[in-house]
Simulated assay, not measured.
Amino acid sequence: MIDQVTGTGALPFAVQLKALLDKEFRYQPKLSGLRIIESAQDNGLRVTVKLRDFEVRDLLSLTRFFGFSAETFSLAVNLLDRFLAVMKIQPKHLSCVGLCCFYIAVKSSEEEKNVPLASDLIRISQNRFTVHDMMRMEKIILEKLYWKVKAPTALHFLRLFHTLIQEQVDAGSRINLNIERLEAQLKGCHCSFVFTKIKPSLLALSLLALEVQELHECEDVPALKEALDGLQESLSVKDGDLMCVRVLVAKCLVEYATTTKCLKPNAQRLRWMISGRTARQLKHSYYKIAHLPTIPECAF
């Protein structure tokens, strides 16, 4: 049975926060596995940090192409990182792993009518494996993650924290603290391996802290600072830890913004325009793809 985060929208903040924190650690990637990825050499034998980040960017492109939610993308990244942290994956299998994690997240988060066929996902992403390969890999991923799919991600914490702050500040401040902008920034952070080792709750708090800091440079909003301090106290986060992660977030967003529209919350949905001839070639090419080599199930 797939483990899920139960709906807690109508519950008090303290109850919702405790429910998320109780599950947070159990759904984090193993640090030992992440360190192995971090130390991997770029020799084609092991997945590296660079390859992981490229794969996450591909998943973000697919998310935009299909118009899927931020929740789907965040969950897909969580599944990918957790799996990579417990299994030895060769680079040639990474695209299959990534697409399967994405497909699991789509089926868990999106409405059933919006879930694409596996064959369409393969064709659009231009991957060189079959539906059979994908179904086999999906089964491996679910088994290795013990069917614990619906993880408490940084997005859950970010939305919860934002809702609390909205209730504590005036209408003018609410306009400034834009949740769409914050979610767009979180997507940028997901594309950087450095945040795989940071707790989702701390990452969410750091995003808010950076946003409040930037708002204070433009205008004095003491209510926002007070609300943020209250959140920090609720999470028992030290000032030094928050400052360190906030600096990492700021650096990441600056680098990410140079090549993407991450900081523009109203960016239009990505559209891929192809000719009829190209579409026919894509369709036919799928049946010519050789099966993916056997995937060894080697744990760290």
Rank of each mutant, 00 (worst) to 15 (best):
H156R: 10
F157G: 01
R159I: 10
R159T: 09
F161Y: 10
F161G: 00
H162Y: 04
H162F: 05
H162N: 06
T163W: 10
T163H: 12
L164I: 09
L164W: 06
I165H: 02
I165Q: 02
Q166V: 08
E167K: 12
E167S: 15
Q168M: 07
Q168L: 11
Q168G: 11
Q168S: 13
V169H: 05
D170V: 04
D170G: 15
D170A: 04
A171R: 13
G172F: 02
S173G: 12
S173L: 06
R174C: 15
N176T: 12
N176P: 05
L177M: 07
L177F: 04
N178W: 12
I179S: 04
I179D: 02
E180Q: 10
R181G: 08
R181F: 07
L182A: 07
L182F: 04
L182M: 07
L182R: 01
E183Y: 01
E183D: 07
E183A: 03
E183H: 00
A184D: 06
Q185D: 09
L186R: 01
K187E: 15
G188N: 02
C191V: 01
V194Q: 10
V194C: 07
F195C: 07
F195N: 03
K197L: 08
I198S: 10
K199E: 10
P200F: 05
P200M: 08
L202A: 02
A204L: 05
A204C: 04
S206H: 02
L207Q: 03
L208N: 03
A209G: 00
L210C: 07
E211G: 04
E211N: 07
E211V: 06
E211R: 03
V212G: 00
V212N: 00
E214R: 13
L215H: 02
L215Y: 05
C218V: 15
C218H: 14
C218W: 15
E219L: 09
P222G: 06
P222V: 03
A223D: 06
E226G: 13
A227C: 03
D229G: 07
G230F: 07
G230D: 06
L231A: 02
L231F: 09
Q232G: 06
S236E: 14
V237W: 00
K238V: 14
K238D: 08
M243D: 09
C244G: 04
V245K: 02
V247E: 15
L248A: 10
V249A: 07
A250G: 10
A250I: 00
K251F: 08
V254S: 10
E255M: 13
Y256F: 10
A257E: 01
A257L: 06
T258Y: 03
T258N: 01
T259G: 05
T259P: 08
T260C: 02
L263M: 15
K264T: 13
K264A: 14
K264I: 14
K264N: 11
P265S: 06
P265M: 05
N266V: 09
A267Y: 13
A267G: 08
A267V: 13
L270M: 13
L270S: 09
R271Q: 14
W272I: 14
M273V: 15
M273S: 14
I274P: 01
I274A: 06
I274W: 03
S275N: 11
S275Q: 11
